[in-house]
């Protein structure tokens, strides 16, 4: 509490725009990647910025105050989560407790869920119910892997995990926790809502789910939400498995590498049914994570 001052506020302001811009950049690049896989030229890499700017310039509708509240809460919560992600070895708040990150992320989802449910469109709620059901699938493997690392280092601070991997490729957790990495890659795909776990959006099925009633700036905030989500989740994986980074461009490159993998999978996969998706997550990601945790636990005994 003592270190709250003007400088910290400025830094946080900077970090909030950093997280949004990085995410938007990735979204544009991701569309480019998908386009190249489909042998298209694709949009310019800054397309997501144009989209968001345009969305904010449009007029929009709201159904009630809960919708406004929820939408603001969602992006706010996720940006607050982004503050806890160490960026290139720098934790702006001085703390990067992974339990906070995992729980604080939920407030973003809760806000989004609340906002779009308040629109009164059943498609939105169906999308949310699918997203939450899927959450039950991917959170557990992630937590198990985090706990495996926590067993090794006796700390649940993300920065500790990142600094522990310094000094070359061989120290990266990819090689130390290979099963865990596989599990988290599968979970990550579900976390981002990319194929084969894109039940939440499913445009042809439930009219883009949560986004069905979002217009203008609401949709713009929805895009920013996805952008910050990208920043947070890729940052999480880079810090957990890819050795963090000491310089900002290496960190960004690693983040993009994670997203690139995800986009490649997304471009060539079809969608599971919801219960198949959850079962798949538990069966594969869950088993791998459990094995990893078990192995680590035995090592610690």
């Amino acid at each position: 509490m003592s270190n709250i001052n003007g400088l910290l506020s400025l830094k946080l302001l900077g970090f909030s725009f950093l997280s949004m811009s990085v995410g938007l950049l990735f979204m544009g690049l991701g569309r480019k990647v998908t386009a190249r896989i489909q042998r298209r030229l694709g949009p310019p890499f800054y397309q997501a910025f144009l989209d968001v700017f345009k969305a904010f310039s449009k007029s929009s509708i709201t159904h009630n105050y809960v919708m406004d509240l929820g939408i603001i809460m969602s992006l706010g919560g996720l940006i607050a989560t982004a503050f806890f992600i160490p960026f290139a070895g720098y934790a702006v708040l001085g703390s990067s407790s992974i339990v906070i990150i995992l729980y604080l992320m939920s407030i973003g989802y809760l806000g989004m869920a609340m906002g779009v449910s308040a629109s009164g469109n059943p498609n939105a709620t169906i999308g949310i119910s699918r997203a939450l059901a899927l959450m039950l699938g991917y959170e557990i493997p992630i937590v198990m892997i985090v706990m495996a690392m926590m067993l090794t280092y006796g700390s649940s601070d993300l920065l500790t995990f990142a600094t522990a991997q310094q000094g070359g490729f061989a120290n990266w957790h990819i090689f130390k926790y290979p099963l865990g990495f596989l599990a988290i890659e599968i979970s990550f795909q579900a976390m981002l809502g990319e194929a084969p776990y894109d039940h939440m959006i499913a445009p042809a099925e439930i009219a883009s789910g949560p986004m069905v009633e979002l217009s203008g700036k609401y949709l713009g905030i929805g895009f920013l939400l996805h952008a910050v989500q990208l920043y947070v989740e890729t940052g999480l994986i880079v810090n957990l498995f890819l050795g963090g980074a000491s310089t900002w461009y290496v960190f960004l490159l690693k983040q993009f590498a994670v997203y690139f993998t995800s986009m490649c999978i997304n471009a060539v996969m079809a969608r599971y049914r919801i219960e198949q998706g959850i079962a798949h997550l538990w069966k594969y990601a869950g088993t791998l994570a459990l094995l990893q945790l078990f192995i680590t636990r035995l090592g610690v005994f």
Partner: peptide, 20 residues
């Protein structure tokens, strides 16, 4: 929209509902 003419070059893309 697809490979040959690729409308997305111009930032055009399909959306699901009229709101968007």
């Amino acid at each position: 929209m697809t490979t040959r003419f690729d409308m997305e070059r111009f930032g055009m893309g399909p959306m699901a509902t009229p709101r968007q």
